[in-house]
Computed example of a mutant assay.
Amino acid sequence: MRKNKAATEETIRKLIEVARTHFTNHGYTDAALESIVHEANLTRGAVYHHFRSKKELFRIVLEDVQREVAERVEQEASESEDVWQQLYLGCRAFIMAAVEEQNRRIMLIDGPAILGWEVWREMDKNHSMRLLRGQLGIMQDHGYFRMVPLDAMTHFISGGLNETALWLANESLQPTAMEETMKVLAVFLEGLKQ
C-alpha cells in the first residue's frame, strides 16, 4: 500500500513539474495537455485520474509557485535579526521571485487571467500575504510604527508589491526598473518608522 501511495505521489510531482515547464514556456493557452502527458510519459487517463482538467492542473502549479515564492520570502527575511531589515528583505524577495522567468507568466499573467483574481488573491493571502501580515503584526506589537488597522496596512503594502511585480514583469527591457523599485521600497518602508 505504501509503495502505491509513493508511486502516485511521484507521478503527480512529475506531472506538475512537466506542466510547470510547459506553462512557463508556452503560457496556459498554448500549453498542450497532450505534450505535457507525452513528456511526463503518462496517458491522458492518468492525468484525468489526478486532475479534473488542464485548468485544475494549472491551479496546482500556481499553488506550487505561490508556495515557493513565500518560502523564498521567509528565507531571505530570516537573514537579518533587525525587524525593519526583515520586512525590507521579505518585500524585496517577493518582488524578485515574482518576476523571475520560471514564475512570472504563471504567477503574474496567466494565474489571474485563467483562475480569476479571487482565486489568485486567496492563494497570495495564504502564502506571501500571510507572512507580511505576521511580520507587520510583530512590528506593530513592539511599537515599531503607529497603530493602524493591521489588515488594511497588510492589503495596502501587499497590493503595492503585487502591482510593482506586475509592472516589472512588463518592464524587463528597462535596465534600471528593478534598481529604482528597490530604492522606492526602501524609502517607503523608512517612511513607516515611528
Score class of each variant (00 low, 15 high):
60 I>E: 05
72 R>Y: 04
47 V>D: 09
61 V>M: 00
49 H>G: 00
54 K>R: 14
67 R>L: 15
54 K>E: 05
71 E>K: 14
53 S>E: 01
71 E>H: 11
59 R>T: 05
68 E>G: 02
68 E>I: 01
56 E>Q: 10
61 V>T: 08
50 H>K: 01
59 R>L: 00
76 E>Q: 13
68 E>A: 10
51 F>H: 08
70 A>N: 15
54 K>W: 09
46 A>K: 10
61 V>D: 01
66 Q>W: 06
56 E>S: 14
54 K>N: 07
54 K>C: 04
66 Q>Y: 03
55 K>L: 01
62 L>Y: 02
74 E>Y: 06
73 V>E: 02
61 V>R: 00
67 R>E: 14
49 H>S: 02
62 L>P: 14
74 E>S: 14
70 A>R: 13
47 V>P: 11
66 Q>D: 05
58 F>D: 04
49 H>T: 09
60 I>H: 06
74 E>F: 04
60 I>W: 00
65 V>F: 07
72 R>L: 07
72 R>E: 03
47 V>G: 10
49 H>W: 03
75 Q>F: 12
56 E>I: 06
47 V>C: 13
68 E>D: 15
53 S>W: 02
55 K>A: 01
52 R>I: 07
64 D>S: 13
69 V>S: 01
52 R>V: 10
69 V>Q: 10
62 L>R: 01
76 E>K: 08
55 K>I: 00
63 E>H: 04
62 L>D: 03
68 E>T: 11
73 V>W: 06
57 L>C: 12
47 V>T: 14
73 V>H: 02
57 L>R: 10
61 V>I: 09
53 S>H: 02
56 E>R: 09
74 E>N: 11
71 E>F: 05
76 E>D: 06
72 R>G: 07
70 A>E: 14
51 F>Q: 06
61 V>Y: 00
54 K>Y: 04
64 D>R: 06
58 F>R: 02
68 E>M: 05
58 F>N: 04
70 A>S: 15
70 A>C: 12
66 Q>I: 05
67 R>T: 15
53 S>C: 03
59 R>W: 01
71 E>C: 03
50 H>D: 02
67 R>S: 14
56 E>H: 11
66 Q>P: 02
74 E>D: 12
57 L>F: 10
59 R>I: 01
56 E>V: 12
67 R>C: 08
65 V>C: 07
69 V>H: 12
51 F>A: 11
71 E>G: 10
57 L>N: 12
67 R>V: 14
72 R>V: 08
69 V>R: 12
57 L>V: 13
76 E>L: 13
75 Q>S: 08
49 H>F: 09
51 F>V: 10
48 Y>I: 13
60 I>V: 15
70 A>T: 11
60 I>L: 01
53 S>Y: 00
64 D>C: 12
65 V>R: 01
67 R>Q: 15
74 E>I: 13
72 R>I: 09
62 L>S: 03
70 A>M: 07
61 V>W: 03
55 K>H: 00
74 E>P: 00
64 D>N: 11
71 E>Q: 15
69 V>G: 04
61 V>F: 01
60 I>S: 03
